[in-house]
């Protein structure tokens, strides 16, 4: 892989109590590219993506070994700050989860918590992030309406805009379109294409066609193992492992 590697997973193991959920995962993540994690339910892809911003810290009994190097520093090392990490590595979830506040406040909240007080600066951030999330034209005249008044697809783009507001480098998306209709899904996919010009995107998806459309690299996981990783075109045209082929062609079970 001849890319600028922003995150390097090396020999990662994870246990939930006695349950060994991830087995010796080694995976490079390229900057300004989209990497898809695919695999059947329970294979560990959501567990893995939650390792990237230490969301699993919140799970009691969770133990991690191995390393996840972000700009060469282990994110699980003693000097790593999870709050700072989550600012640089944002996350968008399966179900849109805007704050029960105005559209404007959803985006301004993060920068304000991180010390931005100037109204003009906050206005600029809100507009810029809404533009980047392809939502500005739809909401510019109602920025102070409740975010809950938006459609599901708009809410999900607002959540992406909210993530962008704290100036991240990596955006994690855990099945971001699974609760959306096809039109909202296509808008999110277009947005992912735009976002990778500036950001690294890692996406968990159950949709094979979505993984093949949006991602540059694809990792196939099964029962906690990383079975195959490669360029998306290779994975979907000529996978090297039979298990990958059986999964993506729907021959499991």
């Amino acid at each position: 892989m001849n890319e600028d590697i922003i995150m390097d997973v090396q020999g990662l193991n994870l246990w939930y109590g006695d349950n060994h959920a991830l087995h010796n995962i080694t995976l490079p993540i390229a900057n300004r590219k989209v990497t898809s994690l695919i695999g059947p339910s329970g294979c560990g892809k959501s567990t893995l993506i939650r390792c990237f911003n230490r969301m699993n810290d919140l799970v009691s009994g969770c133990k991690v070994t191995g390393s996840i190097l972000y700009h060469g520093q282990d994110i699980n090392g003693p000097e790593a700050d999870p709050v700072e990490l989550r600012m640089k590595i944002g996350m968008v979830f399966q179900k849109p989860n805007p704050f029960p506040k105005s559209i404007y406040e959803n985006i301004a909240y993060g920068p304000r918590v991180h010390g931005v007080k100037n109204k003009n600066e906050l206005d600029r951030i809100v507009e810029s992030c809404l533009h980047k999330a392809a939502l500005w034209e739809e909401v510019k005249d109602r920025l102070h309406d409740s975010a809950m008044s938006l459609s599901g697809g708009q809410q999900q783009r607002l959540c992406i805009a909210r993530t962008l507001a704290v100036n991240p480098e990596i955006i994690l998306m855990d099945e971001p379109c699974s609760a959306l209709d096809p039109i909202a899904t296509s808008k999110i996919e277009d947005l992912i294409e735009d976002l990778k010009q500036e950001y690294c995107v890692i996406i968990v998806t159950h949709s094979m066609s979505q993984a093949s459309r949006v991602s540059d690299y694809t990792a196939f996981m099964y029962l906690g193992d990383l079975i195959e990783f490669g360029e998306t075109r290779q994975i979907f045209e000529n996978p090297h492992k039979e298990l990958t082929e059986n999964y993506i062609t729907g021959r499991f079970g």
Partner: peptide, 9 residues
């Protein structure tokens, strides 16, 4: 069906 891999080939 938007086939992939060997089905697509």
């Amino acid at each position: 069906y938007q086939p992939v891999a060997r089905d697509m080939r």
